Amino acid sequence: MRRRDALKALGIGALTATAGCLGGFERQSAWRDPPLVENRPDAVYLPAITEGMKMYGMTKTGPYGVALSYSYPHRFWSVAGSELQKTVVEADDSLHLMASVWDHETGAVLPFDAGVSIELLRDGTLVSEEVAYPMLSQQMGMHYGSNYVLDGEGDYEARVNVGGTSLHRTGSFAGRFETAETATFEFTFDTDELYDVELERLGDEAGTPGAVPAMKMMNMPMGAAPGIGSLPGTHLGRQTSGDAFFDAFVVEDGTQFDADGAYLYVSARTPYNEFILPMMGVRGTVERDGAAIADGERLRRTLDPELGYHYGLPVDSVESGDTVTLTVDVPPQVARHDGYETAFLSFDSMQFEA
């Protein structure tokens, strides 16, 4: 059975093309909204259906490693402040493109505040251009993606424009990732290849706590947070809030992190796959004997080759018996695929004892 026939039999989407002929596909999407779990928990859950992906290529440009992958057009949820907005598949969407960006020296995935955009050209003429949303997926981790409209089957050029970052950077990352760069990919859009992307229904497991394992493609980094045992400093413990993990650490001599005294930092990650959770607003209070050493200070979003993407705060010191309180006043400003869209939106305060 051909893949497109299998999809019809499953009732997943409407496929209008016939073998060897584009037919009505030029103005029809190969994918409509798949099943959505009812009564979804306010937590990470296994989605009703998982979609595989394929890669158009991987390259280097400036300090960046860049990969371009594709899958069926599919829904996702964007976040603005604390508001969640569903983006549905439009009738003329052709495919979902995903750009992954990392430091090609260390493999650290880079969440950029300046953004990533993708231009699509055919015979030198611009066909589509969209800002690619920073996104979290259970299978791909941190990446940039959106649905795109193409002008039928054939050869295309994709230009992935990486805007650089103004994030605070420490260690060997200081002064890097400031320049805008463009990675170029040549690809052929073939509906048969798109329909060969794997699909799987999760049946009774759908809606239960958990996450689909991350995919492994050509050793492409997925944005996993550093292992807790590899992080420097005193580990104050792990707290869970908004179904996210927050691990707090104190480095007594924070010189290498641009701190005159100690350095308090937090590594935030998803449960299960432990992907980084970027673009949050986190505040910290340090209390000693009832007095505030730091009072509701904003932790700075920081990139470091050893700590990864984290939230940091220079403090004079953190001593035994001190209480550290963390609050999240801005949830991660990243779009989400199925299984993440109901988590990481509302957070209780967290306390750690030094």
Rank of each mutant, 00 (worst) to 15 (best):
A211R: 03
A211C: 10
V212D: 00
P213A: 02
A214V: 04
M215W: 13
M215L: 14
M215K: 09
M218V: 14
M220G: 07
M220V: 14
M220N: 13
M222C: 12
M222K: 14
M222P: 00
A225D: 08
G227C: 00
G229K: 10
S230D: 15
S230F: 07
L231Q: 09
P232Y: 09
L236V: 01
G237M: 13
R238K: 13
Q239R: 15
Q239A: 14
T240G: 04
D243Y: 05
F245Q: 05
F249R: 04
F249Y: 15
V250F: 04
V251P: 05
E252A: 12
G254C: 02
G254Y: 05
T255S: 15
T255H: 13
Q256R: 14
F257T: 11
A259P: 11
A259E: 01
D260P: 10
D260L: 14
D260A: 15
A262H: 00
Y263Q: 12
Y263G: 07
Y263R: 06
L264R: 05
L264M: 03
L264H: 09
Y265D: 05
V266N: 02
S267W: 02
R269T: 08
P271N: 07
P271D: 02
Y272M: 03
Y272L: 01
Y272E: 09
N273L: 01
N273P: 09
N273I: 04
E274V: 08
I276W: 06
M279L: 13
M279A: 08
M280K: 01
